[in-house]
Design a protein around this nucleic acid. Sequence first.
DNA 1: GTTTTTGCAAACCTTTTGCAATGGA
DNA 2: TCCATTGCAAAAGGTTTGCAAAAAC
Lengths: 128, 128
Amino acid sequence: MATLKYSRQRESIKEFLMTRKDHPTADVVYENMKKIYPNISLGTVYRNLSLLSEIGEIQKLSNFGSADHFDGCVEPHCHFMCTTCGDVLDLETEGMDDLIEKAGRNFSGKITACDIRFFGTCPKCMNK
Amino acid sequence: MATLKYSRQRESIKEFLMTRKDHPTADVVYENMKKIYPNISLGTVYRNLSLLSEIGEIQKLSNFGSADHFDGCVEPHCHFMCTTCGDVLDLETEGMDDLIEKAGRNFSGKITACDIRFFGTCPKCMNK
DNA sequence: GTTTTTGCAAACCTTTTGCAATGGA
DNA sequence: TCCATTGCAAAAGGTTTGCAAAAAC
């Protein structure tokens, strides 16, 4: 991999994601970056989101809906998507650590990762 | 919803999915349908795959790679994707039925569904 | 005869890429 | 200076859609 050079844009994207508790899409990141860098391009946003998730500084959540979502928190945790409003939220993970081991019992391949996602109605939409 | 009318194409698509143990993408379904209906269009395949998954006769797996996969089996079960060859396989689910209940303990919304996906190396790719 | 489904092609949405110019080390 | 990063625009990949013709009921 090539040497990494500093870029203001990348720094801002990472910072933005870390201060958001939701999990915005590339487009939302782009719209927010335009407030700081009016000429920033969507391509730059995508390139940096890929780069950041490759080096493990952010997490890419693929296919909650049609567009990818990005999470500034890289600690392993589950996600929940509200089927009413489309929001993606974090969820407690306790008691799910042995899933990979359990799943491997009847499988002759090797399982290295696991992704759990929940769906339903979020607290906000429950009160409507 | 409008009344459903019979269509040979839809019937064949469903049958094809039920006899496959892997989980083909729309494109693979399309290529195979062309053997039976040389003039069938991709649009028809997509329309029927959507329709069938809406009425619960097949399952759409939206989370593996860039294209959706389709599963002729609608019983709840987990999936595994090989990060080497890209194949999607079924996996035993025992001991995972209480996940939704567990996840709901610390959550004030309502969880109705859960999707568990595993990643790793499949048996075929282990022997290479 | 009415309504659904089809084939075709164009549109759509999200993401990636080529390229010359800019900027960091 | 050298090479990574940027902005721009075009392309790519997967999926959806509008429309007139064909098929189902």
